[in-house]
Design a protein around this nucleic acid. Structure first.
Lengths: 156, 156
DNA sequence: TATAATTCCTATCGAATTAGTAGGATTTTT
DNA sequence: AAAAATCCTACTAATTCGATAGGAATTATA
């Protein structure tokens, strides 16, 4: 499961993708209240996102955070790696965080590894496609579908 | 990432799928040595697998563990759920372990949830297909491929 | 130029989880 | 009766998670 940190990070990023028109900074406390995230915890999270180059900030009285990249360039895979580490379920199939399984007898012929290698490839593919833009778009789609269902079609 | 417990469990199960001819029990200490798993830890793991109905055991001098189901019937998804809980990355897209995200504002229109729902579906599908039989078969396939590469084809 | 409001940053903390270990009870074969 | 295996409960050290505290630095504005 995702850590709360990662979940909060994604929610904050999506919020910024929606809110910040023309890149105007949004205050931490505003994001925290809107997204039900503990203020101080969010502070630490946004800081890390800035260090990772996804966000930028302005200090002082009119300060706040805003996206450093476009919503198309920020994806869930990168956010997850930043806070939770590898997406792979086994260290021996991770790409950036590769590590041999200590108990492993023969990595090359390991059927377990083969399975988890496939799982990782599929998952990474899907999570890279999950950009902030894609998430916002999906949400819009869901809203439309629901309002369509609530207003039943007129009789002929 | 998988816990060591889950990894050990899978390795032990695959070992049993390979070793136990005609369902003869295999001793814990033998599995532990062969698969590089701490003896006492493995003891606890096998016990859980028995309680879950995947293994059975015989006590006493000629005792040990053996598969309770066929290698086709035991899959990685079930083992992971047993030790690590849900396969879903968000509680709100888990099936058996469903839980609302506390911070969530509207589950129905959540684009994040939509993405992770897809990821879960794909992952579960792959992990259910990953039976002990499939894993052993993949391993055999890999062995053959390697030996083919080492003996280069004869000249015409 | 003071001050109010914001981010920046380090340190700390309690609770939960992980990865085991200890030790003896129970069961079965010889 | 002894040997050898599983069964079962309890414990523990180390790490991670989810946060909080408190103040330094920065910036707009009265």
């Amino acid at each position: 499961m995702l850590s709360k940190k990662t979940k909060y990070a994604i929610n904050a990023l999506v919020y910024l993708a929606r809110q910040s028109k023309d890149g105007e900074p949004v205050q931490i406390s505003r994001i925290a209240e809107s997204e039900n995230i503990p203020r101080k915890f969010l502070e630490a999270i946004l800081l890390e996102l800035r260090h990772a180059g996804m966000l930028n900030s302005r200090k002082g009285k009119t300060g706040g955070y805003y996206l450093q990249k476009t919503p198309e360039e920020i994806n869930i895979a990168d956010v997850m790696r930043l806070f939770d580490g590898p997406i792979a379920l086994l260290p021996c199939v991770a790409y950036k965080y590769y590590e041999r399984c200590e108990e492993c007898i023969d990595e090359e012929t390991c059927g377990i590894r083969s399975v988890f290698s496939d799982v990782r490839a599929q998952t990474v593919k899907m999570l890279k496609g999950a950009t902030l833009a894609e998430i916002v778009s999906r949400s819009e789609g869901l809203k439309k579908e629901i309002s369509r269902r609530k207003k039943p079609p007129k009789k002929k």
